[in-house]
């Protein structure tokens, strides 16, 4: 189980950020070749990311690259570069249908074979940025075994919906739909970026909401948001204490060869144990919520 609370956006054309961002404790790094890169810089950003992916400093970190859509002149070149460079996850922007994922998968497999990379080792992530994407979310999430998660991207979505970003009401259905699709398909779900890095309270309010809804994590645009997010996702002390007892009981049952786990005379079933393991994992990563 990989912890994916924070996914930090890094503009692919910014050499300084690419060559220093590994000092941050984000769970995943998302190198962006799409909207953060001007048309003029597409080629050189692709090469910067190609080499950054191979940096030893990123070796143990999860590396995601947001490529340009395959319908642009850049998408296939981006894909060629990042699959060859050993990217963990390719993030496809503007995913509207399961076919978009299938098309991407075909290309990825071709490149994997061409460069001698294990077929299937490149995971995919679909960003949903439109009304049709939201409606097709389940099909998208199930479109390929390579899909590790789906993400809602708010900027294009609200435009497609003929509204604008506000208090979150405008994203309510999309968040729920994407989240349900992800959970039904057993993949991760990622929430939109929060644009105003100076509005800490607003950010925390949004984080609290998406955590309670059940999102796996959130895309971030500023490293200052990482610790805030991780702390908000960290369990409270009593949650940790309870999770320890659950996990200990499960271990005990395992040791004794019992088929049933019980705690304080009550039966504990598998989802509760999985939940407890997640709680301990988050606590191990960033302690108890402050």
């Amino acid at each position: 189980m990989t912890l994916r609370r924070s996914m930090l956006f890094l503009p692919g054309s910014n050499a300084a950020m690419l060559s220093t961002a590994f000092v941050f404790e984000a769970d995943s790094f998302m190198f962006d070749l799409e909207d953060a890169v001007s048309l003029r810089e597409k080629d050189t950003a692709r090469l910067l990311v190609y080499h950054a992916l191979k940096m030893p400093a990123y070796a143990k970190r999860e590396k995601v690259v947001r490529i340009n859509p395959l319908s642009t002149p850049f998408g296939r070149l981006d894909l060629e570069a990042v699959v060859r460079a050993g990217v963990d996850v390719v993030r496809l922007p503007k995913t509207d249908t399961a076919e978009d994922v299938a098309d991407l998968e075909t290309e990825v497999e071709r490149i994997e074979r061409a460069c001698g990379r294990e077929v299937g080792s490149t995971r995919l992530m679909a960003a949903i940025e439109s009304a049709s994407g939201v409606v097709n979310a389940l099909a998208i999430a199930k479109a390929s075994p390579r899909i590790m998660g789906i993400a809602l991207a708010g900027f294009d979505y609200v435009m497609d919906m003929q509204t604008q970003r506000g208090d979150g009401t405008e994203l309510f259905y999309a968040r729920c739909a994407v989240l349900h699709a992800a959970r039904a398909a057993r993949v991760d779900a990622f929430d939109v970026v929060f644009g105003d890095v100076n509005d800490e309270a607003g950010f925390l309010k949004e984080v609290d909401l998406i955590k309670r809804l059940g999102f796996t994590g959130k895309s971030l645009i500023n490293p200052r948001q990482i610790e805030l997010l991780h702390n908000a996702f960290a369990p409270a002390q009593e949650e940790v204490d309870y999770a320890r007892r659950v996990v200990a009981a499960a271990a005990q049952a395992e040791e004794k060869g019992l088929g049933v786990v019980s705690l304080n005379g009550k039966m504990v079933d598998a989802p509760v144990i999985a939940m407890a393991e997640r709680v301990l994992q988050r606590a191990a990563a960033s302690g108890v919520r402050q």
């Binding site: 050499a15 690419l18 060559s19 080629d43 050189t44 090469l47 910067l48 190609y50 080499h51 950054a52 191979k54 940096m55």
Partner: peptide, 17 residues
């Protein structure tokens, strides 16, 4: 003060252009 990987990337980009 670029790292080697940035040097490679920028040189390659300039050459391809």
């Amino acid at each position: 003060g670029a790292l080697d990987c940035s040097i490679r990337a920028r040189v390659q980009a300039a050459v391809l252009r």
